[in-house]
Design a protein around this nucleic acid. Structure first.
Length: 590
DNA sequence: TTAGGGTTAG
């Protein structure tokens, strides 16, 4: 009679055994699990395979894979279901490499791998960068005939992306006959995570062209790509079209991505509006907003928000402290930074990592407190400081023209990373500032003999939804003559207002012709001239630069913002500069 | 007896 009332799938299932029910209640928590284990031993009843499977899986999920591994031999006739459960649980646990052990063990029991085991074990290989092993497992995928499974294919796309083999990832993706939204997300994310935001957007466009509907994960990735590119128009379009258009609710993941995007595109106020509008805010959202203030030089706002977070918000984590310390460093807020660093250790029990050390050295160093920075390194950094710490210190020596100390500490940096070209560029810039041209030549020769080139600088500006890219001394634009003429006039105007070019900034360049072009035709100046002549008064100019701004460009932009009354926003490699009325939001700390 | 995959923010 029941079957008439209940369709088959809805009919009441048999109740679980008391042991099974208590396992479900215990969940992935080791203490209740060990208590259940003890009861099983005392009762003398040997549990069946299904109960042991649930038990071992929960032990792995609770972060105790070794416990599970010790008990595994007592499972009678372990089956594929058991191994897949353990591989999957490990791949989602903080110790994913154990899934590889369970995968191997499964093969040793002559249980053939399935598409389910492949997805999980490949995820683990991706997460622990086991590139060799992942490739071997790819061969298992092929020989066991699962290479047409779209779940496995997506897992392969993720695996190759995370190993930086984007071309292989793309090959797998292109050969997929039937792509799901997750397949698309995997490929888009692969590009975005590897710093190829433009390719990520291209694949997203392809996705919409093929009429595959994005989901909220797609949008979070795309918005991140927009942050990377400084493409606020696309980011805003996503926001307005999908979220304000009520296609998707604004969750905390997409929300944090938008906060970051608006901040990194120079609109910190809009970032704050999104942040304030979020229904729930987790530590990531708070950290994104604090970091957003920090990169604009708004240290007071950052600190105020951090204080509010400590009272009303979630507990800060170690990344929150990186944002707080960096905000202090960029605004010269010495006491605030020092106190935050102490509080992080004392009140929250975090062990400072390299990122925190770098912020502190930066904090002291930028403010000209080089002795304090050196003392900090000696007192607070256990063991040998990493290259990033010395780079921060050298940057400060350069900023404050302390060439003796620079020479002393550059040896440490080069000893640690003798094959990193950017260190040589920094060093040669320091020698150039010190007027030691013989040393500059020496470094230049060393770089040439190694076949190194300085990274080519460029600036991007968007006018009427079209992006324009300028390189130093660029003559590729059809309006080149007008742009250069406009720039000459602009320089005259700011000279009248008191601008003196900082010839200091004509530093070491590898190519002879590049040296001749000098600071006047730096890419951001060309982009600025083009932006000003192409837009009406009152329009903000937004420029994205791949390298850092040089001192002369920074000075010139300040004057230009004063004489034109325009708001100029430049995002360089590390931070934001918002020029208005002759001053910059970074307060000349950068 | 048992259920299940790959993607998402700072």
């Amino acid at each position: 009679m029941d079957s008439d009332i209940f369709p088959q799938s809805l009919s009441p299932t048999r109740p679980h055994s008391p042991e099974y029910s208590s396992l479900l209640r215990a969940g992935p928590r080791i203490r209740p699990l060990t208590q259940i284990h003890a009861r099983l031993v005392v009762s003398g009843n040997h549990p069946g395979r299904s109960l042991l499977t649930k038990f071992l899986t929960l032990a792995v999920s609770s972060g105790h894979p070794l416990y599970a591994r010790r008990l595994l031999p007592s499972v009678p006739n372990p089956d594929a279901f058991l191994f897949v459960s353990l591989i999957r649980a490990s791949s989602r646990s903080p110790l994913p490499f154990h899934s590889i052990h369970f995968y191997r063990l499964m093969l040793s029991f002559s249980i053939p791998p399935s598409n389910f085991s492949f997805t999980s074990v490949l995820k683990s290989c991706a997460d622990i960068s086991a590139s060799q092993l992942g490739r071997i497992i790819h061969t298992h995928v092929i020989t066991s005939g699962f290479d047409a499974d779209r779940f496995v294919q997506s897992a392969l796309v993720v695996f190759y992306s995370k190993n930086g083999s984007l071309d292989v990832a793309r090959k797998v993706f292109d050969r997929m006959p039937d792509r799901s939204v997750v397949s698309w997300n995997s490929m888009i994310s692969g590009y975005e995570q590897n710093g190829l935001a433009g390719s990520a957007i291209t694949v997203f466009n392809l996705m919409t062209k093929e009429e595959m509907e994005p989901d909220s994960a797609t949008l979070a990735i795309v918005v991140s790509a927009c942050s990377q590119l400084g493409d606020m128009d696309l980011g805003k379009w996503v926001h307005e079209n999908y979220i304000k258009g009520k296609i998707f609710p604004l969750g905390v993941v997409l929300g944090s991505s938008l906060v970051n995007m608006y901040a990194r595109c120079g609109h910190v106020r809009r970032a704050r509006e999104v942040f304030d509008g979020l229904e729930d805010r987790n530590v990531v959202a708070w950290t994104a907003m604090i970091a957003g203030y920090g990169m604009h030089g708004f240290a007071e706002e950052a600190m105020e928000l951090f204080q509010r977070m400590q009272i009303y918000g979630p507990s800060p984590n170690d990344i929150t402290f990186v944002a707080v310390l960096s905000a202090c460093a960029h605004a010269g807020m010495i006491d605030g930074g020092r106190e935050a660093f102490e509080s992080m250790k004392r009140d929250y029990g975090f062990v400072p990592r390299t990122e925190h050390h770098v912020c502190m050295v930066d904090l002291y160093g930028r403010a000209g407190l080089l002795q304090e920075a050196i003392q900090f390194i000696a007192d607070q950094i256990p063991g040998e400081p990493g290259a990033a710490v010395w780079t921060a210190l050298l940057g400060a020596c350069k900023m404050h023209k302390d060439f003796d100390r620079a020479a002393e500490f550059s040896c440490k940096l080069l000893a640690l990373e003798p094959e990193n070209p950017s260190h040589y560029v920094l060093l040669s810039n320091i020698y150039a500032l010190a007027g030691k041209m013989d040393q500059v030549e020496k470094i230049r020769d060393a770089m040439i003999s190694r076949g190194w080139r300085k990274q080519a600088g460029y600036s991007l500006i968007e006018i009427d939804h079209v992006s324009f890219l300028f390189r130093m001394g660029d003559t590729s634009h059809p309006q080149t003559a007008e742009i250069y003429r406009y720039l000459e006039e602009l320089v005259c105007r700011i000279r009248e207002a008191g601008y003196e070019p900082e010839t200091d900034s004509v530093l070491h360049e590898l190519e002879e012709e590049e040296r001749e072009v000098a600071v006047r035709f730096h890419s951001e100046k060309l982009a600025l001239a083009f932006g000003l002549m192409s837009t009406g008064g009152g329009t903000s100019i937004r420029i994205v630069k791949n390298l850092r701004m040089c001192g002369d460009c920074h000075l010139a932009f300040k004057f230009v913002s004063g004489v034109t009354g325009r708001e100029l926003i430049v995002r360089d490699k590390l931070r934001f500069h918002r020029f208005e009325g002759g001053v910059c939001s970074c307060q000349d700390y950068w």
